[in-house]
């Protein structure tokens, strides 16, 4: 009999939904707090608590990534895999991988010191968008409208001793409607697709900043781009986010590794959690 283990560090709506869905299907499930796990170099035999497959849903990217590495090293299948997690959790790597695989993505520039970031911004001109390479929910994502704002931004970053604060990620400001598209991709199937509309007086569309969701119909072009993006990062259970550039069409700007779907499940008729469980079962039987 299969056993699915969900590893979390903060139990969200999604983890509860998935856990309840596993139980509903009559499958053995365990919930393990990632903060409580320890490993050592002698670890070789998986603890039975980890079951046959692990669904890694840790909210801290760095913790999740390192845990995934350890779990895979002792032979456990983890969704998403270390490679997928590493690509998706880091916007710089995601952008590079998408571009390399011919997935349409916004033009993005990287700099690795404050001085080169200043030169980049002057060269690129304004407006432009800055994003932290690690992080979610629209935090640290700003529209830089002019030289004065750029200076404030660089000063703020200089004062920040965050490990990644000296890696700069500048993206073209895409001329798009006041929405983006979130597609929940499970393996090679799109389980749900929703528009996320920006709330009033906000240009970001994240549900975390108050964005409203609505079902987004899939068309062949959208489907092809989304599945191509998912394949490019290595496939798994993912959230592919796209913008609709008024001139060039769909642009994938992010692929989420521990995708949240509360907003999508509020409007979509699709059994998102159920499809995730089916995928995990299929993977554990391989």
């Amino acid at each position: 009999m299969n056993r699915i283990c969900i590893i979390y560090d903060k139990l969200r709506f999604e983890e509860k939904q998935i856990y309840n869905k596993i139980k509903e299907k009559g499958i053995d499930a365990s919930l393990v707090d990632g903060k409580s796990i320890t490993f050592d170099t002698e670890s070789s035999k998986p603890d039975p608590i980890f079951g046959d497959i692990i669904f890694q849903r840790v909210i801290s990217y760095i913790r999740g990534l390192h845990l995934t590495y350890c779990l895979e090293e002792i032979g456990l299948p983890v969704v998403n895999s270390f490679n997928v997690s590493e690509i998706c959790g880091n916007k710089l790597i995601t952008s590079m991988v998408l571009k390399k695989n011919n997935v349409p993505t916004p033009k993005t520039t990287f700099a690795f010191s404050t001085e080169s970031a200043r030169e980049c911004m002057n060269k690129l001109g304004y407006p432009l968008v800055v994003k932290p390479i690690i992080g979610s929910w629209g935090r640290g994502v700003y529209q830089i409208k002019d030289h004065t704002m750029a200076k404030i931004f660089l000063d703020m970053r200089e004062e920040n001793d965050n490990l990644f604060s000296r890696i700069y990620y500048f993206q073209e400001l895409v001329d798009r409607p006041t929405r983006d598209i979130r597609c929940i991709v499970i393996g090679n199937e799109i389980a749900a697709s929703v528009y996320r509309y920006s709330p009033e007086n906000e240009w970001r569309t994240n549900v975390a900043v108050g964005g409203r969701t609505e079902v987004a119909p899939l068309n062949p072009e959208l489907r092809e781009i989304v599945l191509k993006a998912s394949k490019a990062v290595g496939e798994g259970i993912l959230g592919v986010d796209l913008m609709e550039d008024r001139e060039t069409g769909y642009l994938v700007h992010e692929v989420n590794n521990t995708v949240e779907f509360r907003g999508a499940s509020a409007v979509s008729k699709s059994d998102i959690a159920g499809k995730m469980v089916d995928y995990l079962l299929e993977k554990s039987n391989k």
Binding site: K10, I59, Y61, S136
Partner: peptide
């Protein structure tokens, strides 16, 4: 008391 929100928290 829960952990404070980390900069690497997200989805």
């Amino acid at each position: 008391e829960a952990e404070s929100v980390g900069e690497d928290w997200g989805q």
